[in-house]
């Protein structure tokens, strides 16, 4: 074996050298590199999870937005329907009020006309009385008690009016 170069001091020296190399590489190479690889793998995993989470949130937000849009649409429809109804009610009310006002105006006009008529009749009656008195005075040329005469005619007229109306 010595011919091959087998030598205990060389063997031990090489063994120590190899163990030193193993220690050096483990502490200065493998450990930090392994830690970095693990850290990177963790980061990538986290990023992927975050991406997945963001995607899920985005989809959820999209659904919420769609739901909100649908609700807003429904509310809008509701508002339009209510506005139309309110408009119709207002129009109806206005129409009713106008009709009531018209009716009141007609009523007022009628009352006015009635009043005018009554006044005209009264006026006419008075003129007629006066004319009758004058005529009677002229005819009988006798001055009667004017007031008494008047009341006589008035009574007669009333009787005649009552008679006519009945």
């Amino acid at each position: 074996m010595a011919g091959l170069g087998l030598d205990l001091p060389t063997f031990i020296s090489q063994l120590i050298s190899f163990l030193i190399l193993l220690a050096l590489l483990t502490f200065f190479g493998y450990k930090p590199i392994r830690a970095m690889l693990d850290q990177r793998a963790r980061k990538i995993k986290e990023s992927l999870e975050r991406e997945e989470d963001t995607k899920r949130k985005y989809e959820q937000a999209q659904l919420t937005v769609q739901e909100e849009i649908r609700k807003a649409h429904e509310q809008g429809q509701d508002i339009v329907i209510r506005a139309t109804q309110t408009g119709r009610e207002i129009a109806e009310k206005a129409e009713q009020e106008a009709e009531q006002e018209a009716q009141a105006a007609i009523k007022r006009s009628r009352a006015e006309a009635q009043r005018e008529r009554t006044r005209a009749i009264d006026e006419l009656r008075r003129e007629f009385v006066d004319t009758s008195i004058l005529a009677a005075e002229k005819i009988i040329e006798e001055t009667l008690d004017k007031e008494k005469h008047r009341s006589l005619i008035e009574e007669t007229l009333k009787e005649s009016v009552t008679f006519k109306e009945s």
């Binding site: 060389t10 030193i20 190399l21 050096l24 200065f28 930090p32 590199i33 970095m36």
Partner: peptide
């Protein structure tokens, strides 16, 4: 022995400089 020490130095240098300022 000298050759194996050089090998050790080369490997140590390689790993030392590679892992000195590691970045993500």
């Amino acid at each position: 022995m000298i050759a194996s020490w050089i090998s050790i130095l080369v490997l140590f240098g390689l790993f030392f400089f590679a892992s000195r300022k590691m970045k993500l």
